[in-house]
Design a protein around this nucleic acid. Structure first.
Lengths: 336, 336
DNA sequence: GTGAAAGCGCTAACAC
DNA sequence: GTGTTAGCGCTTTCAC
């Protein structure tokens, strides 16, 4: 370590400038990617900076530029693997693209507004919302403040707000097709308590496809969400086991709750007595107890597109809202 | 909306001050929790502020105070439920206590240093590290910059750095005791590829307790980590099935991989042919296919103590490092 | 290519 | 309790 270890912090561009025998502007330019500076100055400055242990004060820069590289992520609680994977992928992608993610996990129905207010106070470069909480006002706020906003798994029609969704219609159709091709003449769709936009689309598309195919489709509706929803749906499914049904759940976690309960509490044999398709392809779906056939959505692809959308909007804030769709595919395992 | 919707942003304390007929300092005081200001001024200011749509610019405040309320969270990839739950709890607790978490998920063995450098550039109030990546230099850096740092599930001995761990020794002993009380005369501990500090302590304590109890304890070591580690450990465990062993895994995800493989690929009956205890009590452990007996650590408690440690150190940066231990308990389900 | 000067929006020390 | 003043550390015209 060549710099003075006693110097705790507080080494500013001024210190570097003095030591390198240049002006503060030169130092600033040296640490600004696209700035014009001579190789000679740059070298001197870099040397001085490293000797001093200088680092750019991003807060000061942020104040000056009226913008930080912070990006707010407003997400639902990380209680399912799908959400965890999404956040993981998004955080990494943001960092890789030069942003710093601020994480706000919210319990559904909490005061998101206050959080958003905080975000805006930080002069964030953008905000990503995946939460289901209804942020009506929030988006107005973002739009008004000209803060780029991209929403994941939502379909709000708002000015300057970009949207990104999986191809839920295709996914649900793939599911129905797989079930029918496996010989199921009777379909069942499980509706969990809170569906969210994607869930609703999947349910609707699944039913529509069933109708197209001329196959009956009944509904098992339950109050809880995720794993518990599957557990509770078991009774409804069992009641229809005589029809050797093909069952579709809007998320893998729900499907896993159902499968787990059916197989391990009631001795139902899958796929002999019924077929089952989930959605998301979370890691647990490939575990031995499950071997769940499902619709795969790539978290990484979502993250990639999300950040791209963000960057584009930062570049061109007034552009028409985009509506990106990420492709999905059927992953066949043992439950169909 | 009473304020001018065209005013995109840029409404400063100066604007508010003018409109309220006071000085900027008054406005500042009004938005500073412990400041002294008359009720009358406060009211005028609040009114003007809301009419103008004013919000404090936290970046400017941060520059002035040489500190933001940002806290860096450096965590491992969110690939297991335990990590997801930990991050969720920590993020929420931080927000609740007035901090803003910045999330950095790192793939083990990546360049953490650069990240930390970024953090420091943001004048963060503190940093929390749960990642296993070896941040030797990082901590020096934090210490040097006087940035409060608390490390979770680690035992580095560093000046000014607080530590928080679960009671791994107690947990491992509880596991061994449960297994032996269930009549197991032969114990097995599964060692996954990368153990981390907690894992090592658990393994060692488990072995020590076995010895105390006068019970044999063998090891099944595998290269992968988490679920895959359990899968790979299956063969080694099966080879010793004639001893009706009591098996201990250092995390639930490993235990679930093992249990899943044993039951569903090899028809092993648990707890008839062997017993199994995991660690963490992740949600999946209570799923029907598993009903895994395990050692519970509370993510919320970890989060609570972590943030408390952080706040204390912010208040008193020079204090002796603390070493907090969070209690654990046995959760008995069906695998013992 | 480089330096001087003028802020970015806020807080804090000081006098009143 | 309130206003005045002086920065926090950086970027950025604007001359040169």
């Amino acid at each position: 370590m060549s710099f003075d270890p006693d110097k705790t912090s507080a080494v500013t561009s001024f210190d570097v400038a003095r030591r390198a025998g240049v002006s503060r502007s030169a130092v600033s330019r040296c640490f600004t990617p696209g700035a014009s500076i001579s190789a000679k100055s740059r070298e001197k400055i870099l040397k001085a900076a490293s000797e001093l242990g200088y680092r750019v004060n991003l807060v000061a820069r942020g104040l000056n530029k009226q913008r930080t590289d912070l990006v707010g992520m407003i997400v639902s609680s990380l209680t399912t693997s799908y959400r965890a994977a999404s956040v993981d992928a998004l955080a990494k992608q943001l960092v890789q693209q030069g942003f710093r993610p601020m994480l706000f996990c919210i319990d559904e129905g909490k005061d998101v507004e206050q959080l958003l207010s905080i975000l805006l106070n930080y002069q964030v470069s953008g905000v990503v919302i995946t939460s289901d909480a209804p942020p009506a006002k929030i988006c107005e706020e973002c739009a008004r403040m000209r803060v780029p906003l991209v929403m994941v798994h939502r379909m709000d029609d708002l000015p300057f707000v970009d949207l990104i969704n999986g191809d839920d219609v295709k996914g649900a159709r793939l599911a129905a097709d797989a079930l029918v091709e496996a010989g199921r003449k009777h379909l069942i769709v499980v509706e969990q308590g809170v569906l969210g936009y994607s869930g609703e689309v999947r349910v609707a598309a699944f039913r529509a496809r069933a109708a197209e195919l001329g196959v009956l489709c009944s509904t098992v509706a339950v109050n809880p969400v995720e794993y518990e929803a599957g557990v509770e749906a078991a009774a409804g499914v069992i009641a229809q086991l005589d029809k050797t049904p093909g069952v579709f759940c809007t998320t893998d976690t729900v499907a896993l709750g159902l499968l787990d309960t059916l197989r391990n509490k009631h001795g139902v044999r899958i796929p002999e007595q019924m077929s089952l398709v989930g959605y998301d392809d979370i890691p647990e779906s490939s575990w031995a107890f499950a071997e769940l056939t499902t619709i795969k959505q790539s978290s990484k692809e979502f993250a990639r597109v999300t950040v791209e959308l963000l960057k584009e909007r930062i570049k061109n804030p007034g552009a028409e809202p985009k509506n990106e769709i990420v492709d999905v595919q059927l992953v066949t395992r043992g439950t169909v």
